[in-house]
Amino acid sequence: MFELRLEQGSLLKKVMEAIKDLVNDANFDCSATGFSMQAMDSSHVALVALLLRSEGFEHYRCDRNISMGINLANMAKILKCAGNDDIVTVKADDGTDSVTFMFESPTQDKISDFELKLMDIDSEHLGIPEAEYDAIVRMPSAEFARICKDLSSIGDTVVISVTKEGVKFSTRGDIGTANIVCRQNTSVDKPEEATIIEMKEMVSLTFALRYMNSFAKATPLASQVTISLSSDLPVVVEYKIAEMGYIRFYLAPKIEE
């Protein structure tokens, strides 16, 4: 059987809110390592990879590896029924076609359980090799979300350029153009407000803003976002999930033909 218990149930709620609009169905893999998921969006432009390590849970039991096919919109509906302070338990018995979500209020005076039917999902798993990136930008996640939102009111694509000057986000549309430059800034009181730019090579890539705005739905999970760029690779937008793992979004660039 498989069982996990997470006292900070709101974290699972936030994970679902971050991915449910990008991916329709996905296989969630449960192993001794943890609870993980990899899925592409329906147009195969973006990929999301989630890892919640077993050590991060208050209780984690996985007798044998299982893969649970889940419709994310339905899982999000169920997790919306959990209170923000609720303790969440997820449980699946071997050989059954459903998974149970149990929510306990912190004072134990309300206990709910929801059973979600599992699905057979024929999903393709992609191997993502470790890569050296030309530039890695760490910045406040809220700032990144704000930039993507602001630029999408002007254009559909964003050019992300990293130079010695900093990281520049540019767009153009029918009404005009926009450029936002963020410089490295480590002289802040709180580390979560820092912007750190590690550049090996200058890099400039173009991406669809629609996807960036979708990734930014993970903002409540982490105060910082890491954007890894290489001229011949998809961008990786990573939100670390405190003490537990990460949610990584991979997005293929747009190129001029």
Binding site: M40, S43, H44, V45, A46, L47, E124, H125, L126, G127, I128, P129, T157, T206, A208, L233, P234, Y250, L251, A252, P253, K254, I255, E256, E257
Partner: peptide, 14 residues
Amino acid sequence: RSVQLSIKEFYRSS
């Protein structure tokens, strides 16, 4: 004209 690449052009099935 800009063309959207697919993620599958970069990563292989495992």
